[in-house]
Design a protein around this nucleic acid. Structure first.
Lengths: 208, 208
DNA sequence: GTTAGCATGTAAGGAGTTACATGATTTT
DNA sequence: AAAATCATGTAACTCCTTACATGCTAAC
């Protein structure tokens, strides 16, 4: 259930949602869209496509459009089943949506996600990062003298997380105001006392 | 060779270099030291320890020190072979040393690395990130209107890379000056102090 | 023509995660 | 006593990466 690497498949379906594509092109777009550390290899993309095919999420069709190119390719197209599956997954709120890759993928397709799901994903991600920050901050090595480089690493990674937290907070705020005040000028006096500095942060509930 | 996941083993050896440890403790320290996205699971740590044991890099010893705790644990200790192996790996400069995990691990043990190796690792990492940045910058989706969220994601990840690039550049500069001027005043007249425009790849020039 | 890039795969091998199992010790 | 946390594993499953293999087409 919720295998972690459904991420790749989810991203593939998401891209195919916009238009049918062939593997080679798909790979390029995935590498851009998700800024994964390493480039996606064919050795993982093609098998993934085959898996999706077997499950009826996509259909294969050899290119029959010499008007555009004479080059032969296998074009993948999203099926209704695939569309439905995608919609379900993208809507799911849970751990899979908050880890690095999962979150990025969800975020990339936010335009097709309901506002409340967006908010829960953003908040879930935020609390996940907050935990990471708290853990990092509380790391005081009992061993005497601190290593210069270890310390530098620590500092930098703490700052990185803090930066991402600010980003998320801004996004969440933007989502809130977009929801309440698309027609600015009369809205209620903002009952939002929210962002408490450090918190265990209430998590939206895990996967169903 | 140079299997990519030698990273975990390398980190384990590095920690054991400081003092013998048992698995449970090792896991905690690894989770702090390397800020990996996910917490390291026992399911990968213990097998890794067994592998190292089989290869003679470490020795196992049941705790015999009731003075400290009555709790039974299996303490791992670095062998000379392990020490040698570690020294070799940490010195290796190459792709494995500049991807996300590999770099972090190398960096964490920089105190025990020669200055010139440090420099090459830092520079290798920098050019790797520069490539990533260039790729990200040149991503102009041919499809008409840009998606708001995709765009936001792109912006944020570009800025993240730029930030890390600046960090690396500062570190490299610091390494240079530490090398030339710890005892300022007498050695060679310091030929050409030109840190900025010197790199394998186009220079990190954030915020074009 | 020859090179470079497009395009699609497969096989071997290694690794990590989750979930499952168990039991001691310390704290409440 | 119960609960929490320390402590060590194993098994199934899935997946990814690397390296290998092939062939077409566009450009030089």
């Amino acid at each position: 259930m919720t295998s972690k690497s459904a991420t790749l498949e989810l991203a593939v379906l998401g891209l195919l949602h916009e238009s049918p594509l062939h593997g080679y092109e798909l790979r390029k777009r995935l590498n851009l869209l998700l800024g994964w550390n390493r480039l996606l290899s064919y050795g993982s993309l093609y098998p993934a496509l085959k898996r999706l095919l077997r499950r009826g999420m996509v259909t294969e069709a050899t290119n029959l459009d010499p008007a555009v190119t004479r080059r032969q390719r296998i074009v993948y197209r999203l099926t209704p089943a695939g569309e439905q599956f995608f919609a379900g997954r993208i809507t799911e709120v849970g751990p899979a949506a908050w880890d690095d890759e999962g979150f990025t993928t969800r975020f990339a397709f936010f335009s097709r996600t309901d506002a409340d799901v967006r908010l829960r994903v953003l908040e879930g991600r935020r609390s996940r990062l907050q935990e990471r920050l708290d853990r990092a901050r509380s790391s005081r090595p009992p061993t005497g003298p601190v290593d210069r480089y270890v310390d530098e690493l620590r500092r930098h990674s703490i700052e990185s997380v803090e930066r991402e937290l600010r980003w998320l907070t801004d996004l969440i705020e933007a989502e809130h105001s977009a929801r309440e005040g698309p027609s600015v000028g009369h809205t209620e006096p903002s009952p939002a006392p929210d962002p408490p500095p450090t918190s265990p942060t209430p998590d939206p509930r895990p996967t169903a």
